[in-house]
Write a protein that binds this DNA or RNA. Structure first.
Length: 422
RNA sequence: GGAGAGGUGGCAGAGUGGUCGAAUGCGCAUGCUUGGAAAGCAUGUGUACUCGCAAGGGUACCGAGGGUUCGAAUCCCUCCCUCUCCGCCA
């Protein structure tokens, strides 16, 4: 949610910023709504003032006295009017709230111009994509793949996109999760194991609702399976005021992530590239607004380090305005090279939300100077998404003998230096 | 799942229709006192929205939402949560 004050005082600035995201937003309609909300509010407040004054006067009057009865009669009509105007106000407020929820966050000045993913800027590259790998092939074509990653049984038991991980496949998932969590702990993130279902208020605070409910699995009692640990993690401090000295708070969490992925078909969905359920470790920070862009760089580096230690070639994209999400101010994507598919796979997305989520979620800190509550800035990034990292490992590290070499950093967690499909 | 009790300010805890944004205590802040501290004394101590150049006003909030009433922390309804006992169970 944006700062309503900023909208009122500098609508042109907001308009220009939103234009960078290439979204179509009717600010004038909102501003008009805002004006009528304020005048309606003032009407109601004036009437309430009258009611309160009458209430005090009546308390001092003998009950049943003529003066008292006269007041009752007088205030009955005021009461009716209050009811009417309050209903009108409530309706406007609801519209106002809905309108606010549809306004996107503003991009940071350093976000490059651009409309399409092609206009994202390659910020950095690490490792070679040119190394000859004659045996490389898409991971789903590797001999024995189906023994470790059983999509057919998964489809039978649950549905497409819910594979079984078996033997070394399951073991590699567990090793990766362990490796990620251990490394994240070393980087100062406190591990959290959160609920994997959240209520509507939580999904709204992080921006999944109201627009993206079609992307989440919903239970009969209106709980949502988390699409990412970001949701329960961010909501941990919802409606709370932290001490300034507690900032920055850094946390990480492993959860399975559930995404309906409605409407995505085709090449992207082969193998482990896109699943309805997948494992991911998420990094989250609550920081002082003055430091959030430094913290974003650190967050990106924390995620990058994982890929470096896994010896996987990757690149960092700085997202252009048009490819930024609804609620982000600035975002880096980390993409790992999959030598078999000969394409980049997104394995992490590191974003600064500034106060956008914090305002929706009312996460604040008490500023030492003023003693007043201020909104924190929130940031999050994957560290990392398991199946795509796994896919890249299979494709890049496939040996001539059909086995897959396990990177040195992972060997202590995996327990051996090769994965076997046999 | 069944039965009962309860949700009030940072905490504890009063308040069953009006003068209650709310007693009192603790905590916290500032000042006085002191060589310094404690104690003591005094004053202050929520959040949000809104009007105003400002000084300063106004309104809302007693778990949430609705209702009754001229008027609701207080009465009624629905929901959520916590606790105790029973049942069930990883």
């Amino acid at each position: 949610m944006l700062d309503p004050q900023l909208l009122r005082e500098s609508p042109d600035l907001v308009r220009a910023a939103i234009a960078k995201k290439h979204l179509d937003v009717d600010l004038d309609a909102f501003l008009e709504l805002d004006r009528s909300w304020r005048s309606s509010l003032q009407e109601v407040e004036a009437l309430r003032t009258r009611q309160k004054a009458a209430n005090t006067a009546m308390a001092a009057l003998p009950k049943g006295s003529p003066e008292f009865q006269a007041k009752v009669t007088e205030m009955k009509s005021v009461s009716a009017e209050v009811r009417e105007r309050e209903n009108a106000l409530k309706q406007i407020e609801e519209k106002w709230r809905q309108a606010m929820l549809t306004l996107p966050n503003l991009p940071h000045a350093s976000v490059p111009e651009g409309k399409t993913p092609e206009q994202n800027v390659v910020h950095a590259r690490n490792g070679s994509t040119e190394e000859p790998r004659p045996h490389a092939r898409p991971h789903w074509e590797i001999a024995g793949f189906d023994r470790l990653f059983d999509f057919a049984r998964g489809a039978k038991v649950t549905g497409a996109g819910f594979p079984f991980f078996i033997g070394d496949g399951a073991r590699l998932v567990r090793a990766l999760l362990n490796f990620f969590l251990e490394e994240d702990a070393k980087a100062g993130y406190v591990e959290v194991s959160p609920p994997i279902f959240v209520n509507a208020a939580s999904a709204t605070a992080t921006g999944q609702l109201p627009d993206k409910e079609g992307q989440m699995y919903e239970t009969v009692d209106k709980l949502y399976a988390v699409p990412t640990a970001e949701v329960p993690l961010t909501n941990f401090f919802r409606d709370e005021i932290l001490e300034e000295s507690a900032l920055p708070v850094r946390r990480c969490a492993y959860t399975p992530c559930f995404r309906r992925e409605a409407g995505s078909y085709g090449k992207d969905v082969r193998g482990l590239n896109r699943l309805h359920q997948f494992d991911k470790v998420e990094l989250l920070k609550w920081v002082h607004p003055a430091t959030s862009y430094d913290e974003l760089e650190k967050l990106r580096q924390d995620a990058e380090r994982l890929l470096q230690k896994l010896e996987l070639p990757y690149r960092v994209l700085l997202m252009c305005g048009g490819d930024l999400g609804f609620s982000q101010s600035k975002k880096y994507d980390l993409e790992v090279w999959a030598a078999g598919q000969k394409r980049w796979l997104e394995v992490s997305s590191c974003s600064n939300f500034e106060a956008f989520q914090a305002r929706r979620a009312q996460i604040r800190f008490r500023a030492k100077e003023s003693g007043k509550p201020e909104l924190v800035h929130t940031l999050n990034g994957s560290g990392l998404a398991v199946p795509r990292v796994l896919a890249a490992l299979l494709e890049n590290n496939l040996q001539t003998d059909g086995r897959v070499k396990i990177p040195a950093a992972l060997v202590p967690h995996f327990g051996k230096d090769h994965l076997s499909f046999a």
